[in-house]
Design a protein around this nucleic acid. Structure first.
Lengths: 140, 140
DNA sequence: CACCAAATGGTTGTGCACAACTAGATTGGG
DNA sequence: CCCAATCTAGTTGTGCACAACCATTTGGTG
């Protein structure tokens, strides 16, 4: 496979910088709610799927317990979630939304629209980007 | 602007996950050299541009002094770089490669080829990805 | 039953990222 | 000349990310 070396390295750096830029945009929108982007991702899974185990969150977000455990502890301290050992299997910890955590979904509303508009990409370009990132991630 | 909400959020997550996946690939290649990906980026700037100030590194990599100062301290401890206050302007700190830091470039060799092959993207797709990330980053 | 391998989440240690702040040097206006 | 605004790094504090390791629980198997 023939590739342009300079381009490749630029892509890696751009991926790295674009990801940080994206979380910076989210920071502006999430700060008022006392949330970080990874915390927001955890809440999105809970809003969508209901009670979930730590392991399932890890598989969904590709994060391990070393990242999730302290993050979930902070969300629990803030009163957004509740942690509970499984009844049948005491190894498992189930994560439940509290009333506060549930209402947060409506309070935050639709961040997506505002974010994507900021990039100025068209729907076509977004679809392409989605496709390319999927392909790149799939192999790795 | 009309967009598909589900797609947008997936793109943000994919950007986030792809960036972490990419640094994970670099980790495997850089660990033998006792380097992290951000440290490698700093060295690349030094290899390419020669002696550089902390501020210039920050502008090149879009990182602030809170990130760079400890990182550069670690690189100095490892003997890869040297820090030196500017002669004319004592506010500025110049970063120089040591002999070790210079030879590291040849020892590491071309990581790019191995990385990009891992993704399985064609040159066309890489060009598209580069273009889309540039456009997205440009506006933000 | 006793024992062992796998599963599950937690803990520890290191290294980014970034906001907020500090300290010192420099520069320009009065 | 003098001082206030600005520039440049560094420091502190919080929160990811991840490797390495650990404790508990579980489900088999002999």
């Amino acid at each position: 496979m023939r590739t342009s070396t300079a381009l490749d390295d630029m892509i890696c750096f751009q991926l790295y910088a674009a990801s940080r830029g994206m979380t910076a945009l989210y920071r502006r929108l999430l700060d008022p709610h006392q949330l970080t982007y990874p915390q927001y991702l955890v809440l999105r899974v809970l809003w969508h799927d209901g009670p979930t185990t730590v392991g399932d969150l890890g598989r969904a977000l590709e994060l391990d317990s070393g990242t999730l455990s302290p993050l979930l502890k902070r969300l629990e301290t803030q009163g957004r979630i509740r942690r509970e050992r499984g009844a049948h299997d005491e190894r498992v910890v189930w994560i439940h939304l509290t009333a506060d955590g549930t209402t947060l979904q409506d309070q935050i509303g639709d961040l997506t629209q505002r974010l994507v508009c900021a990039t100025g990409l068209t729907l076509d370009e977004l679809t392409q980007l989605h496709h390319l990132l999927s392909r790149a991630r799939g192999r790795v």
